[in-house]
Design a binder for these strands. Structure first.
Length: 547
RNA sequence: UGACCGAUGGUGUAACGGUAGCACUACAGUUUUUGGAGCUGUCUGUCCAGGUUCGAAUCCUGGUCGGUCAACCA
């Protein structure tokens, strides 16, 4: 027994490090034991599978500890952001199955408040207006090994700073002429503490505040304060923000905040083999038309995965399985693929489709007869609905399901052998017809009427084939998606990365096939697990030529 | 050459001083009214060197290796 009175032998589910931090905070009554998280995307692109991990983390943690989660758009850089992205992101979060606390927040909601905070810091002598150029500031910052030098404007008076800051706001200066800086420590070993920029001048149109502002807060100045204003307790972000944490805390300390005090916690972002996860590069793929938009089914975006046929549940399970820790990771994309397969195998409807058809004639089946045979929509689901499949004398089977000279372990159709047609009868191959070049054009079989699916029979077969009645077949275009990239990832950096060297030409194939008529009545976006093909999504919601 | 973060099989992740477990991958077998389905099994792991301890993946010291940081991006 430990101090809590619980047995050490008990099989407690293990907690990840975030859960441990939170449980610790709850135990110690930090922020009254409340858990309030937020998901704070910048609306400058579509969300991808990496964001999905963050979404599942933030919303999942709040759910687990009876807390709440805000959706906040970090829209502090008007030149890169748009309402189009805002809408796409909202849709993706909802589709994943999460509901944020209303209303949706925007960092731009706090521009006035942030301005007041900045004035407060100026009055405390903790911030100043600097006239140096971006280049001068960067140079003055020094290097990680050597201290920076102080700006000549660093020690000017409060009144002058106030006046200058006001002029920045009213738009008197051109972009780059002035900047508001926090007055911290030019010799700090942490580069982000060497008088970081809080505001820069941008004469840009903002998607929400329009032309009201000519100064915009930097991420560091906006983020922690936004967290504070919203009452966020645990501000979860990725590892590259670790050096920013000191600054995050400095701002909060110097604003003398009271009440809920947010805490920044970092975790390792998701990396996937064969998958580009950088928004900048995804934007490049879109802009340079390597793909047809952010929601192209070959993209690792949430909307791309959705169109590809991924289910929200499969992505949530994936996010859970990859775990969360502080070390850099590279998850094998096959884990993601495993998660969809597992979900779809359990839940997706089945339908028979033949992609590379060869005609098969059942010689002893009546010529003008056809019958409807009952089939299960999903054999993995005991409550599965049934569908009726038409059967007739002439059918298509997959060309690869027949071999004239089969090797030993070939259990499908060959001259003289018997197989079952799924949901139908056992047949035996009697002969084949070939064209002048020796290609098989017809396979002739006999069937055994007393072997209809569900009947008792003593005949044993080693294989079962899928098939489609020619007369009833529906011509379908089947889209097969493979991974977009065949190598792990194009070299980092390199503005001019030529994706052509990496793109898998087989990443999208449109194949003509024949399906049973059931497909016709199905809903747009319906997932099917095609027998022997894995799954694909019948995406009737968009026109095929869009791809 | 500074500061910070990290290191457990091929890939991830657990074990919180007491049997190194789980999942994915790979491979093998088995099975089947189609499998990229099911079932069974196998392979591979605590970065190194010291120390503390009855006992170390875990604690300490020192190394090594990897990552991050010098946008008026987020």
């Amino acid at each position: 027994m430990d101090k809590d009175g619980t047995s050490a032998m008990e099989n407690k589910p293990s907690l990840n490090f975030l859960e441990q931090i939170i449980e610790n905070d709850i135990k110690n009554g930090v922020n009254e034991g409340r858990v309030y998280t937020r998901f704070p995307p910048e609306p400058n692109g579509f969300l991808h599978i990496g964001h999905a991990k963050s979404i599942c983390l933030n919303f999942g943690l709040a759910q687990k500890y009876q807390g709440k989660t805000n959706l906040r758009f970090d829209d502090t850089n008007p030149t890169k952001e748009s309402t189009e992205y805002v809408n796409a992101i909202r849709q993706d979060v909802q589709w994943l199955g999460f509901q944020w606390e209303e209303p949706i927040w925007y960092a731009s909601d706090y521009f006035d408040q942030l301005y007041e905070f900045a004035v407060y810091l100026i009055k405390k002598g903790k911030a100043y207006v600097c006239h140096m150029t971006a280049e001068e500031i960067s140079k003055g910052r020094g290097t990680p090994q050597t201290p920076g030098v102080e700006s000549p404007w660093r020690n000017r008076g409060v009144e002058e700073n106030l006046l200058e800051f006001e002029r920045m706001r009213t738009g008197e200066y051109k972009e780059g002429e002035r900047v508001l800086r926090a007055k911290i420590d030019m010799a700090s070993p942490n580069m982000w503490m060497r008088d970081p920029v809080m505001y820069r001048i941008m004469h840009a149109h903002h998607h929400r505040t329009e032309n009201k502002w000519s100064i915009y807060p930097m991420y560091d100045w906006a983020h922690g304060q936004s967290d504070y204003i919203e009452g966020i307790t645990h501000s979860i972000c990725t590892l590259e923000f670790i050096p920013h944490r000191q600054l995050y805390d400095w701002f909060l300390d110097n604003l003398d905040v009271k009440g809920i005090r947010p805490k920044q916690i970092e975790f390792a972002r998701l990396n996937l083999t064969y998958t580009i996860m950088s928004k900048r590069k995804l934007l490049q793929l879109v802009e340079q038309k390597f793909v047809n938009g952010w929601d192209d089914p070959r993209m690792p975006t949430i909307s791309g995965l959705r169109r590809r046929g991924y289910t929200p549940a499969s992505i949530r399970v994936f996010a859970d399985k990859v775990g969360v820790a502080k070390r850099e990771n590279l998850i094998d994309v096959s884990l993601l693929e495993f998660c969809v397969r597992e979900d779809l195998n359990k839940n997706a409807s089945r339908v028979m489709t033949v992609l590379d058809p060869v005609k098969l004639v059942i010689d002893n089946y009546p010529e003008n007869l056809s019958e409807m045979l009952p089939a299960i929509l999903n054999p993995e689901d005991p409550d599965s609905e049934k569908r009726m499949v038409p059967f007739s004398r002439e059918i298509y089977i997959e060309r690869e399901d027949f071999m004239e000279n089969p090797p030993k372990k070939f259990f499908r159709l060959a001259p003289g052998t018997e197989v079952r047609l799924k949901y139908a009868f056992i047949i035996r191959c009697e002969s084949v017809v070939k064209d002048s070049e020796g290609n098989i054009t017809e396979i002739h079989c006999v069937y055994f009427p007393d072997t209809k699916s569900g009947m008792q029979t003593t005949r044993k077969v080693k294989g079962t084939l899928h098939w489609v009645s020619i007369e009833h077949a529906l011509e379908t275009e089947v889209r097969l998606y493979d991974r977009l990239f065949t190598v792990p990832e194009p070299e980092n950096g390199a503005e001019g990365t030529d994706f052509r060297d990496y793109i898998n030409p087989e990443s999208l194939k449109v194949v003509k096939g024949y399906s049973e008529p059931h497909v016709q009545t199905s809903a747009p976006g319906q997932n099917y697990q095609f027998e022997r093909l894995g799954y694909f999504c019948v995406d009737k919601g968009s026109s095929p030529d869009k791809l």
